[in-house]
Nucleic acid binder design. Sequence first.
DNA 1: TTCATTTAGTTCACGTTGTAGACTAAATAT
DNA 2: ATATTTAGTCTACAACGTGAACTAAATGAA
Lengths: 387, 387
Amino acid sequence: MTQAVRHEEMRARNLEVVLGAVGRGGPLTRAALAEVTGLTKSTVSKLVGDLVDAGLLAETGPARAGERGRPGVAVVLSGARVASLGLELNVDYLAVRVLDLTGGVRFAARRERDNRGSRPKKVLGELQALATEALTEAHRLGLEVAGAVLAVSGPVGDGVLFSAPNLGWQDVRPADLLRLPVPVELDNEANLAALGELWYGDGERDFLYVSGEIGIGAGLVVNGTLFAGATGLAGELGHVVVAPEGTPCRCGGSGCLETYAGQEALLAAGNAASVPALLAALEGGDGPALAACAAAGRALGIALTSAVNLLDLDRIVLGGVFTQLYPWLSGPVSEVLTTRLGGLRATPPVLTASRLGGDAATLGAAGRIIHRVLADPAPFVTRAQEA
Amino acid sequence: MTQAVRHEEMRARNLEVVLGAVGRGGPLTRAALAEVTGLTKSTVSKLVGDLVDAGLLAETGPARAGERGRPGVAVVLSGARVASLGLELNVDYLAVRVLDLTGGVRFAARRERDNRGSRPKKVLGELQALATEALTEAHRLGLEVAGAVLAVSGPVGDGVLFSAPNLGWQDVRPADLLRLPVPVELDNEANLAALGELWYGDGERDFLYVSGEIGIGAGLVVNGTLFAGATGLAGELGHVVVAPEGTPCRCGGSGCLETYAGQEALLAAGNAASVPALLAALEGGDGPALAACAAAGRALGIALTSAVNLLDLDRIVLGGVFTQLYPWLSGPVSEVLTTRLGGLRATPPVLTASRLGGDAATLGAAGRIIHRVLADPAPFVTRAQEA
DNA sequence: TTCATTTAGTTCACGTTGTAGACTAAATAT
DNA sequence: ATATTTAGTCTACAACGTGAACTAAATGAA
């Protein structure tokens, strides 16, 4: 239901409109903002003034020199006040990242460590230490950290990580074990990585981000918005059926994509002990490794065919392990997509490797808080007091 | 991008808030509306007055008799002014329906006729005649028809019906051949039927509506909103892969759901010449017919498993031919869903037959216009003139 | 150099809309 | 009959955006 609009909400919405226009349109003068937003110059002036006072916008030098007329003063997003904390808990590493309002990385750290089989308390304790470092640094830089988001691999709902196949965890509430002075939210790694690609990638607004790890997840972005389904569990690409009578899967079904293109299946089929080993074998032209990738690619192509038909996808971004395997996967995947979708779609979907690689999840996690501030700056803005 | 909010938009939004609250909350007094919306009594009074003057709300008799205090006057949606026209072009029939703001059916007609192979011009000419009847009747009832929406089976975009497998049409612009005094929009039958179930069904706000015809389409409703994908082509359930090395499909792929559960496959496997014949055979316990349905059900179950994993579905509504075949399909479909999803979801999705049956599409088509008026009533409301 | 022209930004009286609380209206309870 | 309670209206007021006048700061022409 739409909420009632009072004067306060009108102002809040217009603050957002101005801030958003600057965020998208680069440096803009007040006059240009009036043009773009449809508000009058007076209104824009007031709003910009308040946003500058709040530390969300900053004036740059005079713009547009050399032309006739008084040059305007352009404003840009200011990274001086608000920041956010992105956290990632992966099988092989822990990562944190502090982002300011402009998308600038103010702090980033990553600790390689094997979390397989470790107890939640221990792993989250280490993450807490890392996060505290990040918060300390943010504080030293004079930044107000508006919140934190933690990315985990596995289905998430209501603050609970239902299961983490790669860690062997079940029904964990990370926020309870992660005592931080800022509120911590939890979300799925694939969803957050998709948002990372959306906000800090190449500017595409419609795509499916596929995260290949032990499990295979996906995050769907449509018109610049994440689609998470009714309860936030959408994107379980790993259990899309690729062969109804195929290999049994831990989910209870059989022939799920995961049993053909999941990390474990890939390594087993490629006779490799680890992903680096598999990569080395592939680069060395090793037969089983190449065959394993080709088979995984075809399976992925079939699952993606179903996904394209259901979700209407024009662009697919391969992330996680698939980013590194992209040179060996893209051929078979594209081939399957092209043959199977030729009769239905004018052009097959564009396939690319993730541009952000392993940074996507922390960028998306931190970006989520940043974009919440951009979408509703009012709480950070004090009404200008008429002297 | 959010648009700037001026006083006019503030008022427009609040008109919507009040109208929407009445639409959802049944008869409500001004006092109750103030409570519900968070607006003050004075504001609500003004807005309600204008909406009543506009013919969008109507006062009913005094509410809440027998209690202490002055009884309030409840208002309800008024069906007296605005109406809309829903049109459906199906293989076997043409249908029209006039709906008023309350969802009341003011006119409905359906002409059975076999449109297979007919030229677009001829079929749409007949539809135009039927639609004109409907508009005449609406006019006689004093209703202002705000618009019309036409439901067709097949992928649609930008007013173009790209292909209609059941009719043998390609790249038709129905609105051009359908000269009516109201603007005509075009949309996919599965999407519109899904909206019909949402607005005039049993009030569920999250479900996948599956339309089984010659092709198999689907409309996804999440949180009361239709999900149509980036270009409006989402929901092509018929070409979800059910068996990668299976029966070749007209789409260029093979093993698509359509080749197992599409109407043609069903009739062929069941040795029946038509759907009524198949139904008769099923009721008579005919072996091949029963086997055909069971096989189609299993295939549908596999495709829906993929859909549930990708879209996070809690509820699936079977429409089109599947509604009539529901007694024979639900068993195998449920069984497959339960086994294959058991390890992933707490409860398997609820499976039901469409409640509206063949009426869903025209209801959704007409409802689309109605809900557009409900979502933005301002154009219909004249500012009250202070005498 | 001077001044017209052009564009940017600010100021202020005003219009529109929602607010708060007093006021009127219409019912039941005592 | 009168107090009490709830509904709805009325009116002075406040919040916010508007529009036009005004000031500021640049270029270009005389």
